[in-house]
Amino acid sequence: MTDPASALPFRVERDGVRLAVRLTPKAARDSVDGLGMLSDGRAVLLARVRAVPEKGAANAALEALLAKALGVGKSLVSVEGGATARLKQVHVTGDAATLAGRIQTLLQT
Rank of each mutant, 00 (worst) to 15 (best):
L45K: 06
V52M: 13
A20R: 14
I103R: 08
A85I: 01
S31T: 13
A5P: 01
T24L: 15
A27H: 01
G82Y: 00
L19C: 12
R14L: 14
A5W: 11
A69H: 04
A5L: 12
A100G: 10
G34F: 04
A20F: 14
M37S: 09
V32L: 12
T98V: 14
Q89D: 07
M1W: 09
G36M: 04
S6Y: 10
L76T: 12
D40Q: 03
V52T: 14
A27W: 00
D95S: 09
P53F: 00
A5N: 13
L46R: 12
D30W: 00
D40R: 05
S78W: 02
S31Q: 15
E80K: 09
G34A: 05
V12G: 01
V32S: 07
V77K: 01
K68D: 14
G16K: 09
G56H: 06
A28I: 13
D3Y: 05
G101S: 13
L106V: 03
G41E: 01
L106F: 03
A67E: 01
G81A: 13
G71H: 06
G101W: 04
E80R: 12
L87F: 11
R48M: 09
F10H: 09
L87A: 11
V32K: 07
G82T: 00
L107K: 04
L70A: 04
V44H: 03
S75A: 13
L8I: 05
T109D: 12
G71N: 06
A5V: 12
K68T: 15
T109C: 13
D3R: 12
R50G: 10
D95K: 13
P25Y: 00
E13I: 15
G34I: 07
H91D: 08
G34Q: 05
R22L: 15
G41T: 02
L45V: 07
L38D: 09
A51V: 02
L87Q: 12
A43K: 03
